[in-house]
Design a binder for these strands. Structure first.
Length: 426
RNA sequence: GCGUCGGUGGCAGAGUGGUCAAUUGCACUUGACUGUAAAUCAAGCGCCCUUAGGGCUACGAAGGUUCGAAUCCUUCCCGGCGCA
């Protein structure tokens, strides 16, 4: 994997570049659609590619539970398994430590609205018996499967082993995503744990890289009954995943910078910026981190993808974003437009025969009306989620592409100002 | 015509003397969703008042019994079924 920076935003941390992997190039800043279970929900990989995506992100924990990482390995890796020929990345399962742990059953997510004060009160010490599916143990995390209740203990080593089996081009260190509701003492404790886990992830990764590639040595080449040329292709590809370390530190400037400094010096190929944020804290946290991280390596802001957040992320030095928002919102009837989000199921769209967005170049806007999408949603037709996902992913991917172009053309500030003015106009 | 069972909010369908403006589902209205426990979840859904709450009108229609009726009685209207 190689990363080349082509242009920087004057006076800011942002940049445009290209991330080169053996399976293809990613032009940054880039948006990474999420394919948690080796599927971008409601879409075929061909559609995802058609929308302009250059890489997709799968999830270690979910694929480990189902169908199992060894099965994915035997299928030729996540990309081949899901018929996505380009680059892939997998998240480490660190987010599930959070979403199935402290956040389980609560109104806490990646972004917590600080307007709800009850969520900002540290409750770590009085909710110890609250139901949760993930519990942090001595050197890893025990998960209770949401699928069948079985217990699984995931360590940093285990996460990296699973990810090597999944076979993505970029993988992530196992980390602990903390809630902004946690107090400073807990943030420090969790951060030290994340740093220890980062070391162990890196060590395990190097160990596995040192061993022969899982795709050329683990099984006899003829065990598939497949076209031998396929096997030859797969075996001949010099598969060597890049490992990104993850910076945490909550909303505290010192902790964020400390984390960036420590993770930044460990020798990772790139970096993830993690954490659950209060919305108003995010751009500060990202800036603090990217001021410290080595400039020449790529940075991925984990799980962030609302337009305004992408703009501030890019400005503050982020190269890659992944987020479920475009696809999840789509399935739930919320569509992005340049004038803000709309809920296409609302009564006002029942007889609106105009496209979702007038000048949008996506397949949906060129061929269907708001009234039709409204009808599909009300009729609970599966096509609703598909068409809406196409539009939302196109919107987000193209927003990022336009941001990239604006950087290359030296007009990022104007682009940002104009976009936000229109996006927030209604 | 006789007998019988039934008529409850947009629909289906609970309730069968007070805790009923009426459980529940659907529909409808609006919100939320940021490394996917998510094609999900939440709130509202008779009318009026600014909220806590209060007032009014309602369970086919009209009378009645009762301190009190969607619930009991009478008659009428309407529907299903059976027999003529």
């Amino acid at each position: 994997m190689r990363f080349e920076i082509e242009k920087k935003i004057p006076g800011a941390l942002g940049r445009a570049g290209t991330l080169r992997t053996s399976r293809g190039d990613i032009h940054t800043p880039a948006f990474v659609p999420v394919a948690t279970k080796a599927s971008v929900k409601a879409l075929t990989p061909e559609m995802v590619r058609e929308l302009g995506a250059e890489i997709v992100l799968g999830n270690t924990y979910h694929l480990y539970l189902q169908p199992g990482d060894e099965l994915v390995r035997d299928a030729g890796g996540i990309g081949r398994f899901m018929n996505w020929p380009g680059p892939t990345m997998t998240d480490s399962g660190g987010f599930q430590v959070f979403s199935l742990g402290v956040a389980y059953g609560k109104d806490i997510s990646k972004i917590t609205k600080i307007t709800d004060p009850t969520l900002m009160i540290p409750e770590r010490f009085d909710d110890s018996d609250a139901p949760r599916l993930a519990k942090i143990g001595a050197d890893g995390v025990s998960f209770k499967s949401h699928l069948d209740g079985s217990i699984h203990y995931i360590t940093p080593e285990k996460s990296i082993q699973i990810q090597h089996n999944l076979g993505a081009d970029i993988i992530f260190a196992f980390d602990e995503c903390t809630s902004p509701a946690e107090d400073l003492r807990y943030q420090e404790e969790a951060l030290e744990r994340t740093h220890r886990w980062a070391e162990r992830s890196l060590k395990e990764h190097k160990k596995l890289l040192g061993a022969a590639s899982v795709f050329s040595s683990l099984r006899p080449a003829n065990s598939f009954g497949r076209d031998p040329r396929e096997l030859k292709n797969r075996n001949s590809s010099s598969f060597s995943p890049a490992l990104f370390g993850i910076v945490q530190g909550g909303r505290d400037e010192n902790l964020r910078k400390k984390s960036a400094s420590i993770i930044g010096a460990m020798g990772f190929d790139g970096f993830g910026i993690g954490g659950s944020f209060a919305k108003e804290d995010m751009s500060d946290a990202v800036r603090w981190v990217n001021e410290v991280l080595p400039e020449e390596k790529p940075r991925h802001l984990l799980g962030i993808g609302e337009p305004e957040d992408i703009l501030s992320g890019v400005e503050n030095g982020v190269d890659l974003f992944d987020c479920v928002a475009p696809t999840r919102n789509a399935r739930n009837g919320t569509l992005y437009t340049c004038e803000g989000k709309i809920n296409i199921t609302n009564a006002e769209f029942k007889k609106d025969f105009s496209p979702v967005e007038k000048d949008c170049g996506c397949y949906v806007c060129k061929n269907y009306s708001r009234a039709y999408l409204c009808h599909l949603f009300r009729g609970k037709e599966m096509l609703a989620g598909t068409l809406a996902s196409i539009h939302n992913l196109y919107f987000t991917i193209h927003l990022v592409k336009n941001i990239r172009q604006a950087i290359l053309d030296d007009r990022f500030p104007d682009f940002k100002r104009d976009f936000l003015a229109e996006y927030n106009s209604k």
